[in-house]
Every structure is written in C-alpha cells, then in structure tokens.
Design a binder for these strands. Structure first.
Lengths: 196, 196
DNA sequence: AACTGGTCTTGACCTGTATCAGGAAATATA
DNA sequence: TATATTTCCTGATACAGGTCAAGACCAGTT
C-alpha cells in the first residue's frame, strides 16, 4: 500500500517514534483510502466534519461563502496536511466551511471516535497529534497577526518568503483569497514587486 | 495556597480528571507563583519566552509594535488563561511579541522543560494541554477567518456576541487594537450600533 | 479550427477605514 | 484642590484596497 507508506513516514517523522508492524496493521484496518476528483467536495457548509483526511496526494481549499457570495479561503492543504474543520470534527457541530479539491485527491480518512478507540494506545500517533495541534495553533497565531496588522503587500511578501511553493501550485485568484485580497489587488502588488 | 486551588479546579475542569494529593504536591513544588504590577512586562520582543504563566488573577495583552510605532494586540488574557508566546515557548526561539500586564497579575509559572520532566506522568495535565492546544487552534482559526473576511463592524459584533466581558474589562482603545481597528473607527461603529 | 471556460491584467471609479487635529470628560497623582 | 494623564468622541481629509467593466491569453473540448 504505497498510500500508507507515505503516511507511516509522516507519522514517524513528526513523532520521532518508529511504528511496529502491529501498529501499522491498526492503521491499515481503520484508515479508509478515498479519492476525490478536482472540484469535488470533502465537506459542505452546514454538515458535520465526521472525517479527518490525511492528504497523500493532491490539494484542497477550505473556504467560506459570505453574504455577497464571495469566497474566502481560510486554509490551503496539500501533501502531508490534514483535511478537516477541526472545530466541527472535535465538537461534532455543523461546520461553517466548505472543503473542496483543487486537484485530484488521494486521502486516508478516519473519524475522531476511531482515533479514540484504536489509536490512543499508539504513542507515535499521540505524539504526532500533539505536534500537529501545536503547529496549527502557532501557524494560526501568526496568520492572525499578519491579517490584522500587515498591509496587503506585507502579507504577500510574507507568503513569498514562507510558502513559495503555494505560488507554483495554486492560481493567483486562490492565493489572493487566501491573503484576504481581491485578485485585482494581488495582480497590482505583483506588478509593483517585479519592478523593484 | 488559594492561588493553587483555582489552578487545580481549572485542570480538573478541563481534563475531566481528579488530581490526587500526590499530584497536587508536584504542582506546588514546580509551579512558581509570581506577581506583576500593571504595566510591567511578562515578555519583551526579542527575548525567549522561557515561562508559561497561568493567570490566577488580573489581565494582560500580547502585542507587537510595527515599523510606524503602532501597537497591534494579538491576544488578551485574563483569569484561567495562559500567558505565553507558545511559538517561542515550545521552540525556544526569540519572540516577536510583548506581553504586558493591563491589571495587577497573579501568576503560576513553569518552563517547558519542567513540564516534560515532572508533568508528563500526570494524566490530568496531559489531557488539559491537549484541550488547550485544541481550543487555541480553533479560536485562532476563527479569528483568522474574521480578520480576513469580516468588515470592522462585523468583527465588533462578533466580539460583543462571543466575548462581551472584554468590553467591561478593557478600555476601548485596547479593544480597537485587538480587532485590528483604529480607536476612532471603533468609536464610530459604536455610535452607529447604539442608534439601530 | 472554433468555441468555451478559466486565468490574469489594466483602467476608472468608489468606499471603508486610517490619519490628523482638537477637545471634553473621567481618573489618577501631587 | 489643582494638575496631569488617560480615555473617548467628533470632524476634515487622505489613501489602500475593493468594485465594476473590458479585454488578452491560454488550455481543454467538440
């Protein structure tokens, strides 16, 4: 299962703990592989996010539609990220977000109940969860900071510095929305930046 | 130690696990009580955030000063919250933020190394950490969302709905900065809101 | 080869929010 | 009691970034 190998590597890397063959079998038994085509939805606004999906291949956007029908991208996910609205996933409340494939996706999916039942005894998985939550909290903290106090241009420069691969992978209107900008404004910022 | 009783209640509440007398002694031995007066700094930009402080009483702001000398408040903390820049605390890197008392503070402080040495065997503490990280990640996720896609007025309404006690506790210029607004704009929003 | 839909750019104009300046009221300090 | 200092409000003006409209380019489809 080549899908799972990437997943095992990821868990071992984040946790710093090697998985036993037995433990690997628990993953094989309870994580469900799934494919989604570009444009398909992993989650729709109003639904409960029952599953978290580990991205083996492909990419997706997590976004909200506002009253005026405009889309606002909260998160972009690709290989070695998780697909989920964690608020909905942990609390089993209806989600405010949509998650949609930007490229064809290969996922490994699990429910929170399964995690509690089958993975609470696997130290590597516990440690991995710790690291993920920590990283996610820190990343969001920095993003709040940027969103509240940086100008449009500073936010773009920040992205170029910290997530340059986003630019190669996603169209500019997606990047613009992720930065909280209109596509027109991003286009103008890039024109200026290329001059200096 | 009345300080510690509030802390024990908090741990038991968040973790759902009762602490034994033995475990309580571990907390008494390794958490260091500390007081800070209004305006004193818990952390300064550029320093490593060695300690996390549990707020027994009082309040504080976490903020950054930008190039123009303007202050941007990232986080407001009060009773039953933690004082720390978690990025700096976990990675021991220099912090980009300042943390300063808004009211006189009573804290219980601990280092990350102490947590790993003495508290990794206390299930209630482990569970509490899980919940904190989870809540913090979710809160920040919602704040990113609000900062990127809500108007100033929507952000204020959101605060009134979700954190009404902030308004009683903090001056409006602090609230304005927390919302990413100038004090003047907040004042005008409030004037409008009171009309309708 | 023509068509369709998506992507990106550019210009003209508009709007929300910041900035600057002044002052009133409340609170702390001497 | 007098005097700072902080907090909050209001008006005038400026500007960043949004909105609307149009067109160019490109990739995929038929």
């Amino acid at each position: 299962m080549s899908n799972f190998n990437a997943f095992f590597d990821y868990i071992q890397k984040l946790s710093g703990i090697i998985l036993s063959e037995n433990e690997k079998h628990v993953f094989l038994a309870h994580f469900k592989p799934r494919k989604l085509l570009k444009r398909q939805y992993f989650l729709q606004q109003g639904d409960v996010c029952k599953y978290a999906g580990f991205v083996v291949k492909g990419s997706a956007k997590t976004f909200r539609i506002d009253d005026k029908g405009h889309e606002h991208i909260l998160k972009l996910s690709m290989e070695e990220w998780w697909l989920a609205d964690f608020e909905s996933y942990y609390h089993l409340t209806p989600s405010r977000y949509n998650i949609q494939a930007l490229e064809d996706l290969e996922l490994l999916m699990v429910t929170n109940a399964q995690v509690e039942d089958f993975f609470s005894t696997i130290p590597a998985f516990i440690a991995m969860q710790e690291v993920i939550k920590q990283n996610y909290a820190i990343a969001n903290q920095n993003r709040v900071q940027a969103a509240l106090s940086y100008t449009a241009e500073e936010r773009y420069d920040d992205l170029v510095a910290n997530y340059p691969h986003f630019l190669q992978r996603f169209p500019l209107n997606v990047i613009a929305s992720y930065l909280g900008l209109s596509p027109e404004t991003l286009s103008r910022i890039r024109k200026n930046a290329s001059k200096s």
